[in-house]
């Protein structure tokens, strides 16, 4: 249970930490906006957990997947809106709203998944000490990794490789959208392109390397064809929408 809790925590919570690593580099002057998104995300995630059984029964048993699909699409749309703003910055209310809703969508979806696991273990084993210890260690690993990743992103910006940060961010968002394909496949709403591609024969998707790839750039080592195509198209879309606009000056405020 100890190791499994750490693994599930990393699976569910690491994407949230990675998201904030990106935002801390790309969006340096909107701390309150990010905080509002996070708090609302935690609140919505808790609500989704409390209503999880009812949601799961909706739409002929497809409720959970459809809600997660909706959150992924909405989150992707909001972050694309944020990303296409010149220099990742705007004083527009819509810009702030896009950031808040984007953060809310990612946090709520991931957080509710972890709550389902956490409380199933609390109610099942009742071993709160082990669960708490594992959670603290898992959170420590996630925080440490996200800080390291943030330093890496900041170093890239300092050395004039902002385009690489933007590219990784675009791939991260593509990974968010490609989850739509995965969720819909679970409930048989997409039935084509389900053959697996073994792109990472050197590492398993369920390995640490696999989790890190998925968390940082949304890339799965063994995606199904449809998911891979959606991932690729989503990345192209974002690059297309950004066009050849000047590289944003995101280094300001990075310390």
């Amino acid at each position: 249970m100890f190791i499994n809790t750490v693994i599930v925590l990393l699976r569910d919570m690491l994407p949230i930490f990675i998201l904030f690593s990106y935002l801390s580099v790309l969006l340096t002057n909107k701390s309150s906006v990010k905080a509002v998104g996070f708090v609302l995300g935690v609140a919505l995630g808790t609500l989704l957990y409390l209503l999880a059984e009812s949601i799961s029964d909706m739409f002929g048993g497809r409720g959970s997947e459809l809600v997660k699909t909706g959150l992924a699409i909405l989150g992707y749309g909001c972050f694309v809106r944020f990303s296409v703003a010149r220099g990742f910055s705007s004083k527009s209310l819509y810009f702030d709203l896009a950031v808040v809703v984007g953060v809310l969508c990612v946090v709520s979806s991931q957080f509710s998944s972890f709550l389902v696991y956490l409380f199933s273990q609390v109610n099942g084993s009742g071993n709160v000490v082990t669960l708490s210890t594992a959670s603290v260690i898992g959170l420590g690993i996630a925080m440490s990794f996200s800080y390291l990743y943030r330093f890496l992103l900041q170093a890239l910006v300092r050395h004039g490789n902002t385009w690489l940060v933007v590219m990784c961010w675009s791939l991260f968002l593509s990974g968010l959208l490609s989850q739509v394909y995965f969720h819909l496949a679970q409930v048989d709403m997409v039935t084509i392109g389900l053959k697996r591609l073994e792109l990472g024969s050197w590492a398993s998707e369920s390995s640490v390397v696999g989790y890190l790839f998925k968390a940082t750039i949304g890339f799965e080592l063994s995606p199904v064809i449809g998911q891979f195509i959606l991932y690729f198209l989503a990345a192209c879309l974002l690059v297309g929408l950004r066009g050849f606009s000047p590289v944003p000056k995101v280094s300001e405020g990075v310390h």
């Binding site: 749309g77 694309v80 809106r81 819909l184 709403m189 997409v190 449809g226 959606l230 879309l237």
Partner: peptide
């Protein structure tokens, strides 16, 4: 944003099957 909306609709509905 209009491009994004169209893209998402195309992706979802071209893969939708209820066999």
């Amino acid at each position: 944003m209009k491009t994004l909306n169209i893209f998402l609709l195309v992706v979802i509905f071209t893969t939708f099957d209820v066999k």
